[in-house]
């Protein structure tokens, strides 16, 4: 498992941390990058609509399955999305995927990601979020990306952004709100 956290990224994460501070109470020891990503995922949940059958009732929590299972350790979502809590569920085996609403694959290994994506390819109501290269081309719905932004001549800012594959979300039976789409770096798929 590799953790690529550069100096720039670190700075950016500190900056972004302010944005999500209300939602994520990250411990200083936890990697800042994933804290920011956890915040993003929380916000994604706000702009995504699941179908009715995904939940038992309206108070049912949103299950966030994460791989590797310890990646969101020590991250706790204190806020609800609507009436629902977000519960983080470590990815132990492939069976666990079946009841997940959001699947975060925090690995950059494309084959591994493809394997996992294939598992959930035919499954409904699972929002797949990944950070590997070409995640959306491989059939994932939202894929994180990092952009470099020149602040001035000396400094360069790294900014976390994401791509969206609408075909994938359609297959999953999910509806993504326009706010999410307008903010995305790249939206793939028809429509």
């Amino acid at each position: 498992m590799k953790y690529r956290v550069s100096g720039f990224t670190f700075q950016a994460l500190i900056f972004l941390m302010y944005l999500t501070a209300g939602q994520v109470h990250a411990q200083p020891t936890v990697g800042e990058e994933y804290r920011v990503k956890a915040g993003f995922i929380f916000n994604f949940a706000k702009f995504v609509e699941w179908s009715e059958e995904a939940f038992e009732d309206k108070n049912s929590p949103i299950l966030l399955c994460v791989f590797p299972p310890d990646i969101f350790n020590k991250i706790l979502f204190t806020q609800n999305i609507g009436t629902r809590e977000i519960l983080i569920k470590p990815y132990q085996n492939d069976e666990d995927v079946k009841c997940c609403h959001i699947l975060f694959l925090g690995v950059s290994d494309k084959d591994f990601v493809q394997e996992k994506l294939n598992i959930v390819k035919d499954m409904k109501n699972i929002l797949t979020v990944g950070e590997s290269e070409d995640f959306t081309q491989m059939g994932g719905i939202i894929g994180f990306a990092t952009e470099k932004e020149r602040v001035n001549l000396l400094a360069e800012k790294r900014r976390l952004t994401f791509d969206i594959n609408l075909d994938a979300s359609d297959r999953a039976g999910l509806k993504l709100r326009s706010q999410l789409l307008s903010t995305a770096r790249k939206v793939e798929g028809s429509q």
């Binding site: 916000n43 900014r159 952004t161 994401f162 706010q179 999410l180």
Partner: peptide
Amino acid sequence: GMNSEGALLFNDPRT
């Protein structure tokens, strides 16, 4: 505001 919700949440001043 509504259109900018995402931009705000996802820190996207350009949008």
